[in-house]
Computed example of a mutant assay.
Amino acid sequence: MRKASRLFEIIQILRLATRPVTAAQIAGRLEVTPRSIYRDIVALQAMRVPIEGGRGIGYILRPGFDLPPLMFSIEETEAIVLALALLQRTGDSALRKAAETVSDKIAGAMPAPLRQVLSTDAIYAWGSVMPEPDGIDLAMVRAAIRDEQKLHITYTDEQNRATERTVRPIALIYYSAHSVMVAWCELRHGLRNFRADRVTRGTATGEHFTGEGDGLRKLWVDGWEINKNKFMQ
Rank of each mutant, 00 (worst) to 15 (best):
S179F: 01
A204S: 14
K218D: 13
F194N: 03
I51W: 08
K150I: 06
G108P: 08
L187E: 06
E9C: 01
C185N: 03
A99Y: 00
N229T: 05
T210D: 13
S73V: 00
A83K: 09
T166K: 14
E78M: 07
A23E: 05
L30K: 12
F231S: 12
V42Y: 00
K3I: 09
K150L: 15
K97F: 11
L114T: 07
E158Q: 10
S103G: 13
W220D: 08
A112V: 15
I145Q: 07
G135H: 09
G135K: 01
L219Q: 15
T33Q: 14
H208R: 15
A83Q: 03
R62V: 05
F65D: 12
I60L: 07
L82Q: 15
A23P: 00
I74C: 15
L191A: 01
L44E: 00
I136C: 01
E148C: 08
P50Y: 08
A139M: 05
K228E: 14
R6G: 03
F231E: 11
R19D: 15
R19T: 06
R198F: 04
V32A: 14
A171P: 00
E132D: 11
G213E: 04
N160G: 11
A99W: 00
K228N: 06
S5N: 10
S128F: 05
S103Y: 06
H208K: 11
D134C: 06
A23H: 07
D121I: 01
S36E: 12
